[in-house]
C-alpha cells in the first residue's frame, strides 16, 4: 500500500551543515500491517515518518500511496492527503484545548464533512475501544497524559484513514499507560484492519509489533 523508492533526505542546516538523514530507503508496507520503526536516537525515524506523512519534503526518490506518487505534489494536495488518507498521532499536544474530547475525536470527520449523526456514532465506537467513553465531555487539560494520547489515537482512527502514523506515541507515558495504549492500538488494528506505522525505542512496545523496521544512520538495516 505504501512504497518508498530510493528515498533520500538531506538537511542543510545546523551542524554538521549537511546531514544525510535518509539513505536510499526502499520500503513497502502492506495494508493491515502493525509495524514499528526503531533504531538509535538520530537514526531518522521522525524524518521517515514525516516523509511518509507528506509533512516534510524528501530530497530524492518517490513515495507511493496505493497507485499515487505523493512526495512531489503541490502543498494544497498534500494537505488534502494528510486530511483524508493519513491519521497522525504526535508525541504530545495533539488536541485542541478548547474542544471537548468528543469534539476532538470527531474533528477530522467534521473537516471531511460527515453528518453530526455519523460523527456521534463513530466517536462513541472508537472511544469505547480506547476506553475514554467516560470522558467525552471533558476538556483535554483535565485528562491524564495517557488519556490524552488515547484521544489522539481515537481522532486519528475515527475517520478510517488508510494509514496511521504515530511518532513515539508512548514517549511521554509511563510503562503502564504505554502498555495500555499499545494494546488498544493493536486491537484497533485487528478489529478494524487499520494499517499502523509507529516509531519507538521502547523494548516492550517493539515486542508488540508484528513487524519491525530497524534504521541506523538513515539507512534501513532490517525490515
Amino acid at each position: 500500500m505504501i512504497r518508498l523508492v530510493n528515498v533520500n533526505k538531506y538537511f542543510y542546516r545546523g551542524d554538521p551543515r549537511e546531514v544525510h538523514a535518509l539513505k536510499d530507503v526502499n520500503l513497502s508496507i502492506q495494508s493491515g500491517e502493525f509495524t514499528v520503526i526503531t533504531g538509535p536516537s538520530g537514526c531518522g525515524k521522525t524524518t521517515l515518518l514525516n516523509a511518509i506523512g507528506v509533512l516534510d519534503n524528501v530530497s530524492e526518490g518517490e513515495i507511493w500511496l496505493e497507485d499515487r506518487e505523493i512526495a512531489h505534489l503541490p502543498a494544497t494536495q498534500k494537505t488534502d492527503i494528510r486530511l483524508n488518507s493519513i491519521g497522525f498521532v504526535f508525541q504530545a499536544y495533539n488536541l485542541v484545548p478548547v474542544l471537548t474530547v468528543e469534539e476532538n475525536i470527531g474533528f477530522i470527520m467534521r473537516l471531511q464533512g460527515y453528518s453530526d449523526e455519523a460523527i456521534r456514532i463513530r466517536v462513541r465506537e472508537v472511544a469505547s475501544i480506547l476506553q475514554i467513553d467516560q470522558k467525552l465531555d471533558s476538556l483535554p487539560n483535565f485528562l491524564s497524559g495517557g488519556q490524552q494520547q488515547r484521544v489522539a489515537v481515537a481522532r486519528a482512527v475515527a475517520s478510517k484513514p488508510k494509514i496511521i502514523l504515530a511518532d513515539e506515541p508512548t514517549a511521554n507515558l509511563d510503562s503502564k499507560n504505554s502498555t495500555a495504549l499499545m494494546e488498544m492500538m493493536k486491537e484497533l488494528n485487528r478489529k478494524e484492519g487499520i494499517t499502523i506505522l509507529f516509531s519507538s525505542h521502547d523494548e516492550y512496545v517493539m515486542k508488540n509489533a508484528r513487524r519491525t523496521i530497524l534504521l541506523n544512520d538513515g539507512a534501513v538495516v532490517s525490515s
Binding site: 494537505t79 488534502d80 494528510r82 486530511l83 493519513i86 504526535f90 499536544y93 484545548p97 477530522i108
Partner: peptide, 11 residues
C-alpha cells in the same frame, strides 16, 4: 496548536 492543526490537514 496551529502547527499541529495544519499538520493533520486543517486548511
Amino acid at each position: 496548536e496551529f502547527g499541529i492543526l495544519l499538520g493533520i490537514g486543517y486548511a
